[in-house]
Design a protein around this nucleic acid. Structure first.
Length: 199
DNA sequence: GGTAGGATGGGCT
DNA sequence: GCCCATCCTACCC
C-alpha cells in the first residue's frame, strides 16, 4: 500500500504527446502541459507546475545568449528535452517548444508522484516525506533519474515522454521563481491548490 | 512554524 | 573570474 494519502498505484495510460503539441507558442505549451503525465521508465508524475522561457526579449532564458553547444537544442524542433546543471549540483528539465529555428522551452518545476513511488523514495533518501519527492525542479529530476545526459532526447518517441491526460482544474499565474532578469513577467503556471507545487 | 547561508561545477565573458 | 531557472541543514522562534 502507498503511504501518506497518495493515490494508489494505477496503470498510466494516454497517448504520447506529438510534435505538433510542442511546436506552438511557448506560453500555450507551458499551460497545456499542466495535468499531463511525465514518464521516465518505471516512474511517472503529473505535471503540476511549469515556467515558460521565451525567445526574443526574455533575458532570463538560456537562449538569450544565442546558440552555444549547450543551448542549441532550444533553437531546434519542439518536443526535445533540454536539461542543464543548475548551481553545480542539480539537473533541471525543460521541454523545447516552438518549431525548428525559433527558441523557447518550458521548465518542469513540480510533479505529483503517480507511479514508481518506491523507486522515487530510494532515489531521494533525503526526502523524509513523500510530499518532498518531486516538489521542485531539482527534486523531480532526481526522483525520475533524469540528468543532463538526456538533453537533446526526442520526447515524441518513447522512454522519456509526456502522456496526454484530461482533467479539470484552475490554473494560477505568477512571476517565475529564482531569477533576477525579467523577474516580473507572469510566466509561471501551476494547478491551483495542488499539494506538490513548489511553493 | 520560519529563514539564512553554504555546497559546488559547468558555461560563458 | 563571475554567474547562476536549487536543495538542504541548522538554527530560531
Amino acid at each position: 500500500m502507498e503511504r501518506d494519502g497518495l493515490r494508489p498505484p494505477q496503470i498510466v495510460t494516454g497517448r504520447i504527446l506529438p510534435r505538433r503539441f510542442y511546436e506552438r507558442p511557448t506560453i500555450d505549451v507551458a499551460r497545456d502541459l499542466l495535468g499531463k503525465v511525465l514518464v521516465h521508465g518505471p516512474t511517472a508524475g503529473i505535471i503540476v507546475e511549469t515556467e515558460a522561457y521565451l525567445g526574443g526579449d526574455d533575458l532570463a532564458s538560456h537562449s538569450a545568449a544565442g546558440i552555444t553547444n549547450r543551448t542549441r537544442v532550444i533553437f531546434g524542433p519542439g518536443g526535445h528535452a533540454y536539461v542543464y546543471l543548475s548551481y553545480g549540483m542539480h539537473d533541471c528539465m525543460n521541454i523545447v517548444a516552438q518549431p525548428d529555428g525559433t527558441p523557447g522551452c518550458v521548465l518542469i518545476r513540480a510533479l505529483e508522484p503517480l507511479e514508481g513511488l518506491n523507486i522515487m523514495r530510494q532515489r531521494r533518501p533525503k526526502a523524509h516525506r513523500d510530499h518532498d519527492l518531486t516538489n521542485g525542479p531539482g527534486k523531480l529530476t532526481q526522483a525520475l533519474a533524469i540528468t543532463r545526459h538526456h538533453s537533446g532526447v526526442d520526447m515524441t518517441k518513447g522512454g522519456l515522454v509526456v502522456l496526454n491526460r484530461s482533467a479539470k482544474f484552475n490554473i494560477e499565474v505568477t512571476p517565475r521563481i529564482g531569477i533576477t532578469k525579467c523577474a516580473d513577467l507572469p510566466l509561471r503556471f501551476f494547478i491551483a491548490g495542488n499539494q506538490f507545487v513548489s511553493r
